[in-house]
Computed example of a mutant assay.
Amino acid sequence: MRCGKPVEKEEQEYCRDCSGHEASFEQGRSIWLHRMPVSGAVYQFKYKNKRNFGKVFAREMALCYEAQVRRWKIDEIIPVPLHKSRKRKRGYNQAGIVAEELGKLLHIPVNHRAVLRIRNTRPQKELNDTQRIHNLKGAFAVPENQKIKPNILIVDDIYTTGNTIERVAEKLKAAGAEKVYFLTISIGQGL
């Protein structure tokens, strides 16, 4: 099991999105499936300034996955970045809030500068699978002055097809990360 998304049959090793291709990340998990009431709470957190939800989501992440994170031997947590124009408009990066709170709970450093979103992309939720892949090409970069640690945990809000996590993981591996894992609040159903 790579991403933690539900599969149709017990004997399946990978979901539809993970099967048939290599991934730049080793493994990942999400707290909940992306359906109501979770999807509504994530929407409120992301678009309606419910920043305090970040603490709740991080607490649940720690409760569910602290042991897993310890097994992964995470050196540093990196939130998926927002483009500066989107962050300015929204006022905050929801992944950054969860990462920061999780880092405090697990006593793991958080690096908000390790990955930058250098291209303002369309929201992934508006796109089909093929468009999602093309939308994120060249969207992320690791600054040359960043020393990337060996075992990285990427934190984001929603894992749908995995394209965002994949693009960030690719950049981190190219910059020296040995292993990249992820945690998200919710995950698509994948069936």
Rank of each mutant, 00 (worst) to 15 (best):
residue 1 M to S: 07
residue 1 M to H: 12
residue 1 M to K: 12
residue 2 R to M: 07
residue 2 R to G: 03
residue 3 C to L: 05
residue 3 C to F: 11
residue 3 C to G: 01
residue 4 G to Q: 10
residue 4 G to S: 06
residue 8 E to Q: 09
residue 9 K to Q: 11
residue 9 K to N: 09
residue 9 K to P: 02
residue 9 K to R: 15
residue 12 Q to H: 09
residue 13 E to V: 07
residue 13 E to Q: 11
residue 17 D to G: 01
residue 18 C to P: 05
residue 20 G to H: 03
residue 23 A to E: 11
residue 23 A to L: 12
residue 24 S to I: 06
residue 25 F to W: 15
residue 27 Q to A: 15
residue 28 G to Q: 08
residue 29 R to H: 09
residue 29 R to E: 05
residue 30 S to I: 07
residue 32 W to K: 03
residue 33 L to G: 07
residue 37 P to C: 08
residue 37 P to Q: 05
residue 39 S to R: 14
residue 40 G to K: 11
residue 40 G to D: 15
residue 45 F to G: 02
residue 46 K to G: 03
residue 50 K to V: 09
residue 52 N to Q: 11
residue 52 N to M: 13
residue 57 F to Y: 05
residue 58 A to H: 02
residue 58 A to L: 10
residue 61 M to K: 07
residue 63 L to V: 10
residue 64 C to A: 15
residue 64 C to G: 04
residue 65 Y to F: 15
residue 66 E to L: 05
residue 68 Q to D: 13
residue 68 Q to S: 12
residue 69 V to K: 07
residue 70 R to D: 04
residue 72 W to A: 04
residue 73 K to C: 15
residue 75 D to L: 02
residue 76 E to T: 04
residue 78 I to G: 00
residue 78 I to C: 00
residue 78 I to F: 02
residue 78 I to N: 01
residue 80 V to D: 02
residue 81 P to L: 00
residue 82 L to H: 02
residue 84 K to Y: 14
residue 85 S to E: 10
residue 86 R to L: 06
residue 88 R to V: 08
residue 89 K to N: 11
residue 91 G to E: 05
residue 91 G to W: 04
residue 91 G to V: 13
residue 92 Y to R: 05
residue 93 N to A: 04
residue 93 N to Q: 05
residue 95 A to F: 02
residue 98 V to D: 06
residue 98 V to N: 05
residue 103 G to K: 01
residue 108 I to Q: 04
residue 109 P to A: 00
residue 109 P to C: 00
residue 113 R to Q: 06
residue 114 A to I: 00
residue 115 V to R: 02
residue 116 L to R: 12
residue 116 L to T: 06
residue 117 R to L: 04
residue 118 I to L: 10
residue 118 I to C: 00
residue 121 T to C: 03
residue 121 T to V: 07
residue 122 R to F: 03
residue 127 L to S: 01
residue 127 L to W: 09
residue 132 R to P: 06
residue 132 R to H: 08
residue 134 H to T: 10
residue 136 L to S: 07
residue 137 K to D: 07
residue 138 G to H: 07
residue 138 G to Q: 10
residue 139 A to C: 10
residue 139 A to H: 06
residue 140 F to Y: 13
residue 140 F to I: 04
residue 140 F to S: 00
residue 141 A to H: 14
residue 143 P to F: 05
residue 147 K to M: 04
residue 147 K to H: 03
residue 149 K to C: 01
residue 150 P to Y: 06
residue 151 N to C: 10
residue 154 I to L: 11
residue 155 V to D: 01
residue 160 T to D: 05
residue 170 E to Y: 06
residue 171 K to N: 06
residue 172 L to P: 08
residue 175 A to L: 01
residue 175 A to C: 01
residue 175 A to V: 00
residue 175 A to I: 01
residue 179 K to N: 14
residue 181 Y to H: 15
residue 186 S to Q: 12
residue 187 I to V: 13
residue 188 G to Y: 12
residue 189 Q to D: 13
residue 191 L to N: 13
